[in-house]
Design a protein around this nucleic acid. Structure first.
Lengths: 229, 229
DNA sequence: CCGTCTTAGTGTGATGTCTACACCTTGCGA
DNA sequence: TCGCAAGGTGTAGACATCACACTAAGACGG
């Protein structure tokens, strides 16, 4: 029994805005489209939702198929449904954004795409569909949410230095932060654990490595604590 | 040319969580369903998206058809797509939340609904589909966002007293606020204009009426100001 | 092995923000 | 005109934020 058997339905897709921090600041993962429409253009990884999978599963599946990425931080962003956003007809797209550690994200282009690559958010190429608008919405969400949710850690490896973490915030918030104030504040939250290890192989004094204590964060959150940078 | 002509599509609906402040605190507008599934249950106003309307238009249309409400503050909340959320088959729903002034919202039940009425969020009846989950998500969004966006004003008439405004925040944040501190802070933002009028017909000293200066807010926002309560 | 280079790591004082708190004023209605 | 109920107002102490500069340690090259 169909809910509206005599009723035409929009097609439903998911799209993923994958962010990472690179040498050029904030970057987004794009694929080069192989097929029409917009063959040859860069676009967000994504595709049609299957009938037997929920939306987040569809986003994760498409992401893995088109870029090789798995086990990433992924959160629903917004649903885009302008009637003219796809030249093929009515297509509504549920957009997600993901955060990954660029250095540890090993990419694998898929048959549907000619290429997969990182692009600086500050200098995007022309994008297919309304994908530029989707990236802009994701960027804004990231800027807003990074201050009150522990998102920064998702862009780093499990063990990281405070300087690396500070750089994440400086890139996302697009402003310089004071080293001493930053360290004091972030350590005062009690969410970072000193692993006791030092970063090796750098041509200067070796910095301490920390990790984010997710368990403790969830605990504190339940008790009414809120992350604030 | 269909984007996926041989591909089955989920049905697509919109649902609206309409909030207002009533005597019992935060309230939500529900309709009593006339038809199966869930005939007789309370549910959120909503319905199927037409092929030639965008998502927000669909939400506004359904809201007007089922409750009579027009010109409300409306913002997209989240898209719910669990495969089993509708017993009729695969239905994905884009949820919106709306804020209205309960005193000035004149309701008109529609043919699709046996009744339309306000219900305290603290004591909801059993709801159809996953609508309880949707209300919970909307409630959480409202609690979070009311602190950094000027949403409170949407729940009041154009002209309001500071005590009315304070009550809005107390109800939503579920905590008592200090009168002097609240007034100082909210007036310091420079977003309220004293209309020069007084509220009449109350059995005590007549309070001043203010209005929210939307134009000035947009101006300040562009200049990097951010609302904060 | 010594010097140089580069980033790590650390404390304080001044300034602004937040919090807690109590009383007089005003308008209405009895 | 008296009582009632909410309106409207200031200050001091605690706390958080900001600006700011030097020494420490490790790597590398000569």
């Amino acid at each position: 029994m169909s809910p509206d058997h005599d009723h035409p339905r929009p097609a439903l897709t998911v799209d993923c805005v994958v962010f990472a921090i690179g040498d050029d600041g904030l970057e987004v993962l794009l694929i080069e489209r192989d097929h029409e429409p917009f063959a040859g253009s860069w676009a967000l990884p994504g595709g049609f939702v299957e009938m037997d999978e929920n939306l987040e599963s569809a986003a994760r599946r498409e992401l893995e198929e088109e870029t090789g990425l798995t086990d990433v931080f992924l959160e629903q962003l917004y649903t885009f449904g302008a009637t003219d956003r796809d030249p093929r007809g009515r297509v509504v797209s549920v957009a997600y954004y993901a955060l990954v550690d660029r250095a540890h994200a090993h990419l694998a282009a898929d048959s549907d795409a000619a290429a997969v690559d990182w692009h600086s958010v500050a200098a995007l190429p022309g994008l297919a569909f309304d994908h530029r608008e989707i990236v802009a919405a994701a960027h804004e969400r990231l800027r807003g949410k990074v201050r009150y949710a522990p998102l920064g850690f998702e862009l780093l490896p499990r063990h990281f230095t405070l300087t690396q973490l500070q750089r994440i915030y400086e890139v996302i918030l697009d402003s310089a932060l004071d080293k001493r104030n930053f360290r004091r504040k972030i350590l005062a939250m009690g969410l970072l654990v000193d692993t006791g290890k030092l970063q090796r192989g750098v041509a200067h004094r070796a910095p301490r490595l920390y990790r984010f204590d997710r368990r403790r964060y969830k605990q504190l959150e339940r008790d009414g604590f809120s992350f604030w940078l």
